[in-house]
Design a protein around this nucleic acid. Structure first.
Lengths: 345, 345
DNA sequence: TCCTTATATGCAATCGTATGCGGTAATTCG
DNA sequence: CGAATTACCGCATACGATTGCATATAAGGA
């Protein structure tokens, strides 16, 4: 190899096209962005330019464009865990909407860590984007305000209401759905001792579902035992562990609700490994309705979230702002959940 | 609302920092990229600059940096389907490696479509990146050559050998693993009629696994029936459909091998919905060993791919090139598969 | 004292694109 | 036929950063 410099290919630039077409670089720019500028372009010139573009295989450099112009043609999306199927339809929907507008999507997962979320904010400040989609677990409203202030990006958020002028929010009715599910366990299935597998995060989804769980228990006048609450980290393994703890109790719960399906599936594993039958010995209810929920046996009873619809709603609201179609104040959308009864409860 | 212009916050620039610190903009640049330039910086100046950076909360604009400088601090990764768990550890590994180098990762999924893969190439030409990680199903070597020629990016590819100077490849020993699995079905389990659920793509993984399947059958001197071959699209639904077709045969297969776990799980669903017992009535073997493979009942027998290791290997090879640590010719890495016997066969 | 060397900083060009403004040729009009 | 438009197009600057080169100051040597 010796000293063979890497063949750093110079990209084809507008100037190359201009030279080839015998026009100035600014004319090329105008031809490419033809969308009715005040300035008309000669038919002959336009044709020569387009031929040169074709011949050289020119593609504009979006980085350069976003430096001079305003638009970066990129949005960023922050999710907690790319391995959680709940996010997949959402991501896919966002990407689909973005693609129709010729936008790229940068996905960052935070591993449910505050550190990860802060890193994301920083990263978006360093590499400006036109819009941001957030599924925050730790970010406060102040953090998001700062993000907007520093980048000027439009923002769509799931599950946390932001009062900022430039942010829209999408809500699920998690609380109602959880209330319905727990009430059903109590009234229709006669459960009294219900275990709860939650998470630590004090904001957002985890906390709201916990509140709804407590509400349902209180509403049924059932006692609330501290040992019926276990903390996980949204992962299957943590759900498994939580269930093991429950099963080691003198009086284990007869039903268990986990705030997401992955933990519910983990709980099922633990119960079955302990030789218990589901739902006869212990009933299990999850949240999300990810595809594996209907692959396991018995199939998991759960609360379905319309992940694709959530993603689509967020993306469309975002792009209305990004494209300047909407410039008003904060909007709020609601996406309904629905309780899906299967065999695990 | 009327005509309230959106408050397009001007970002804090180097010039702002320079003004605040009472130095020139180029000095700020040198302080920030201090990594032993030939040019020394006064201790006093450095301190003033850093204070100004701190005070203003300055972050460099990476887009601007990548215009003048060389590095974009971004790599792109192309996968077929973000919803396929097989890719998750890979993506995660790539992101982890990237993060240690302060790089961002752009993920694009192609839905297994050639169109999607071509779109990705175009997108990378438009928005230059320092490196590209590919899991191609349709891209030819010529396509990849073109990508490198146009962008100068370093490239790491899974499963397809690229002879280009600037590309490394990672291989699994899929063929051996499939051969082993099928031979085991034949010799240890006595299967003779084995169904195969494959895919259309003529390159890469799908085709190699098909070849290995045929090889194993021939090696055992078993006849090969055309009706024992079904085509899916890697999805659970397509696996389900394929199995339904098998089951409608006069002589259905006694065992079925699917080229990925999602289709295998779909096949299980179809078999169980038809009232068959697994593995007694029909044995099922998959490929990948995604987490749901051990959630289904019976647990899925499959060939495990070390997805995280693959991602890690690709990313590390890539960054050796991106950072200029390695500038030699194409390298090739192999990552072993292993056959995991569980209850479905 | 003057010239060299080392040290520290600023100037200005540059990356690829967008765009306000001015300039030229063609056209219209009185 | 001369003047005022109109239709097109190029010049030059800006975006925010990097970097080669020049410059200014201090230190050192003869």
């Amino acid at each position: 190899m010796a000293h063979q410099d890497p063949p750093r290919k110079r990209a084809v630039t507008m100037r190359d096209v201009a030279r080839q077409a015998g026009v100035s670089q600014s004319t090329v720019s105008r031809v490419l962005n033809d969308v009715d500028n005040g300035i008309p372009i000669g038919e002959e010139t336009r044709k020569r330019v387009m031929e040169a573009v074709e011949a050289l295989g020119y593609y504009p450099n979006l980085n350069a464009g976003s430096l001079r112009g305003q638009k970066t043609f990129m949005i960023a999306m922050m999710i907690a865990d790319i391995a959680n199927p709940f996010y997949h339809p959402m991501v896919r929907a966002v990407q689909d909407v973005a693609r129709t507008h010729r936008y790229d999507v940068m996905i960052a997962n935070t591993d449910h860590l505050r550190e990860g979320e802060m890193h994301f904010v920083e990263s978006v400040i360093r590499r400006p984007v036109d819009g941001v989609i957030l599924v925050p677990y730790h970010l406060t409203e102040a953090d998001i305000d700062r993000l907007i202030a520093r980048t000027g990006a439009a923002v769509a958020v799931l599950g946390q209401h932001i009062h900022h002028q430039q942010a829209d929010t999408v809500y699920g009715d998690d609380d109602q759905a959880v209330f319905e599910a727990i009430s059903w366990l109590i009234n229709e299935r006669g459960h009294q001792r219900i275990g709860f597998i939650g998470v630590t995060s004090s904001f957002s989804a985890g906390a709201r579902r916990r509140a709804a769980f407590l509400e349902a228990m209180r509403h049924a006048n059932l006692p609330i035992y501290p040992e019926m609450f276990e903390i996980g980290d949204w992962s299957t393994a943590s759900g498994e562990h939580a269930m093991q703890v429950f099963l080691s109790l003198p009086h284990p719960p007869t039903a268990v609700f986990a705030v997401n399906d992955l933990m519910a599936i983990g709980a099922m594993e633990a119960a079955q490994n302990a030789g218990l039958r589901i739902p006869e010995d212990v009933a299990i209810v999850g949240f999300d309705d990810i595809p594996p929920a209907s692959w396991v046996r018995p199939r998991l009873t759960t609360v379905a979230q319309r992940s694709a619809e959530i993603g689509c709603t967020m993306a469309e609201a975002l792009f209305e702002r990004v494209l300047g179609v909407y410039t008003g104040t904060s909007r709020r959308y609601e996406v309904k959940c629905r309780f899906v009864k299967r065999e695990s409860a």
